[in-house]
Computed example of a mutant assay.
Amino acid sequence: MIDLRSDTVTRPTAEMREAMANAEVGDDVWGDDPTVAAFEAEVADRVGKSAGLFLPSGTQSNLVALMTHCHRGEEFIAGRFSHIFRDEGGGAAALGGIVAQPVDHEPDGTLALATLTDSIKGDDIHHARTRLLALENTFRGRVIPLAYQKSATTLAHDHGLSTHLDGARLFNAAVATGSSIEALGQGFDSVSLCFSKGLGAPAGSVLVGEEGFIARARRWRKTLGGGMRQVGILAAGCQHALSHHVDRLAVDHAHAQRLAEGLAEIDEIEVQGCYTNMVFLALPASHCPVLSEALESRGILMKAAPRTRLVTHLDVTGDDIRYVVQAMKEYFRQPVH
């Protein structure tokens, strides 16, 4: 199947599986897994931080960061459509007792500096005290500009806030801009990086920050059930992705661009944007249920909706892109659906 639902559907390559099978392991809760320790250290070094913490998922990594930065009853600011606010099961509130202050996004995905300033609450006992600003890069495939990043993190620090970056697809941003991961992590007290999306590992994220922060985060990881034993098997897959799959993200970006260009030739489809490895479409609502079924019958998986996201990744080839465009064209040529 050609699966365009998300880049989370990627499968480990044969070379990655071999690296995982040959990984040297130990009990990571005891700090005895050498593969995990080496991987955490390398990721932290790349981001310019002192320490790293391996976690099973990006959601848990973000939650551990929130619980390390904020006490119960305190508040973090995030975009209304950010993953950390909208798509992580309300974990901050349910498990951390942390209040979320969502704010609207600007058209480019950023959060207006004036809005951030107005959203910050001080020591008034009537309010939850604001402790953290959480940003996301990429956001729905869009790269957050470095200049904005510097301004937003400086504003937060000037108001006594900590800063966290959900960098689930930060490597996509690095490849798209030619910037280093370290540059994209500047100004943030913590950064979460995911290896199970475009980089193709089966599981694993790393939270990085200064040593004291990561020491506290390690305790919260244990509390949340994220302490794993011979997890070097997973870390080896992530290490292989870090070593071999970063530069090739440019291929995914090129495939997304070709997909957008091909679908733009279909009158019934409005291509609303193409950012890094994501293509956003407006589809006729009446077609959506039938379209999904028709494409699946031809070996294509997508979640057709009036506003649809298609995501390219390492399991999608150039031939697959051409096939998908042709299949969509043939579908809309039919007189009756």
Rank of each mutant, 00 (worst) to 15 (best):
T13A: 09
T223Y: 02
A174F: 05
R5T: 15
I98Q: 06
E24H: 08
A203Y: 02
V311K: 04
G273F: 05
Q239I: 01
I120L: 02
G96K: 03
G122M: 01
R218S: 14
R140Y: 13
A134H: 06
A203L: 09
L132N: 08
R17T: 11
P202K: 02
V206Q: 01
V191P: 07
V324N: 10
M302R: 00
L295M: 15
I120Y: 05
N172C: 15
M228P: 00
A78M: 11
A201F: 09
T177G: 14
R218N: 09
S57G: 04
I269D: 08
F195Y: 15
H240F: 15
L113H: 03
F213Q: 01
D32Y: 10
V251F: 10
G212L: 04
T110G: 11
V64Q: 06
V29K: 03
S82K: 09
R46W: 11
V191Y: 07
G26K: 01
T117F: 02
A23N: 00
H240G: 10
A241R: 10
R309G: 10
T308S: 12
A94R: 12
L155S: 04
K329F: 03
I120E: 03
R298V: 04
L242G: 10
F213M: 08
R219T: 15
D252F: 12
P202G: 07
S162K: 07
Y275M: 12
E15V: 02
G225T: 05
F280E: 02
K49S: 14
H127M: 11
P56Y: 09
R219D: 13
D33P: 07
